[in-house]
Design a binder for these strands. Structure first.
Lengths: 257, 257
DNA sequence: AAGTGGTCTAGACCACATT
DNA sequence: ATGTGGTCTAGACCACTTA
């Protein structure tokens, strides 16, 4: 357990001990002191060195296994995963974060911000509203490195978010604005389909009519499963690529042995 | 804890108790005895009724929370998630399974099956091979309800899979064939982008040139992180829609309080 | 024989919600 | 005051791998 000598955990911190242990192990991975394929400290080793219970050490390691950073082999140990496998390929991010992660500078040009009564019925349904409810519509051209990337139209229930009309949505992220008002989106359902650029969109995206484009519809939810936002985004096909990691479903046992 | 009266757990089964509890709770959800939004049995309640430790009951419930079937609210209880939230929207499936899930009848027309020396360098890299290695190429037109759905080209390392040349890949699934030979793919990385149908593809997909299409590239891996298969699929834009569920990354605390 | 992850127990204290 | 999930402890037994 030499590798653990340097750091310890604070037992009376507001941060759970297992979280502190997760961080310690992640730091070992990120700093390269633990390489892919290499064996991570054992649960008992961590517990002894840090003076904590094995179950607490195990909670930390299990969490890292669940997130794909480590994998465990019964009888042998816990090992560091291949980096490719632990890429967060399906994280809920804002356009701003997404572009930054791709190494591009995000930007926005506000095209429309207002209240509307007319929207496809699908949108009311996604937000759990009736056609009588008002909607806030935010229409923006999103840029990456100052070049047009996508056309984005967001819909939110008007009643809760009228304050958004006062917000600066060109320089700041909509998600940041929501969070600073205590609204946190934790889940989203996305549907992607291929389409082509139409005349009204052609000029704004600076590509010719008929150019390939990715149409993404996203419905975002809070922790309490309340739908807050419906976004329709039209990405230039030549500039945007969507990545995902798929996993085979873990069979849930418990039937007949 | 009335709701638990009927079933019990077998303490000496080879199936872990927490797995049995997971199954019991899932059955309550699937059968409708527990509805979305409703409170699930408490950890202590489960423990008392089934005569197990609370930590074991908690392991079951935490697992169901992690998988999105339940969500917990500290101080209040654990509740059944909205069904939409627990759809396995990003499961690794074969074309065959995917179409069946969409209620369509899958089919395949074998266009080419053979060994090749010439493939884009990207494919060798994805499979961890060198250009000197031989590749198996399977080119198929995939249909759904007898209508063209996508053009699919699969590449596999030749050395391990020459037996595939004898396989019936029109009526059967490639994944099924692999599994029956002990090769199980458990993870895949997918990249999606919008494109348009070109002349060579137009006739096979029975859509005109310039029609929107979704290009999907998938690299599939075994449990041991060995890349087995690279697939390039061109889906008709009007027939195929890709769905995904995104989650906000759980912040990993542990820095300064 | 020693070490490992996987499972399980019977308690405990906390912050928070509800009543 | 009671019940809830969240965290933590100090043990235990098992099946497995490695030496």
């Amino acid at each position: 357990m030499r590798s653990f000598d340097q750091g310890g955990v604070q037992k009376n911190s507001s941060i759970p001990i297992y979280s502190q242990v997760e961080r310690i192990v992640m730091d070992m991975i990120d700093s390269g002191r633990l390489s892919p394929g290499q064996r991570a400290p054992s649960e008992r080793g961590i517990a002894d060195t840090l003076g904590i219970s094995r179950m607490t050490a195990r909670a930390a390691m299990s969490s890292l296994v669940a997130d794909g950073y480590l994998y465990s082999v019964p009888g042998k140990g816990t090992f560091v995963s291949n980096p490719k496998m632990r890429q967060d390929l399906l994280e809920l991010t804002s356009f701003t974060q997404d572009m930054r992660k791709r190494g591009l500078k995000p930007g926005a040009k506000l095209l429309e911000l207002g209240v509307t009564d007319e929207a496809p019925e699908k949108i009311y349904r996604a937000l759990g509203l009736s056609a009588a409810d008002g909607l806030l519509r935010i229409h923006r051209l999103r840029t990456a490195d100052e070049e047009p990337m996508c056309l984005e139209t967001s819909y939110l229930p008007k009643d809760y978010f009228t304050w958004l009309l006062e917000e600066d949505l060109e320089s700041g992220s909509l998600y940041r604005a929501l969070e600073s008002h205590g609204v946190e989106l934790v889940r989203a359902e996305e549907h992607l389909e291929a389409t082509v650029v139409r005349e009204t969109e052609s000029e704004l995206l600076t590509v010719r009519v008929g150019y390939p484009a990715l149409l993404i519809e996203r419905t975002s939810y809070t922790e309490e499963d309340k739908a807050i936002e419906f976004v329709k985004s039209l990405y230039r096909g030549d500039r945007y690529r969507f990545s995902a990691m798929l996993f085979k479903r873990r069979p849930r046992r418990g039937g007949l042995p």
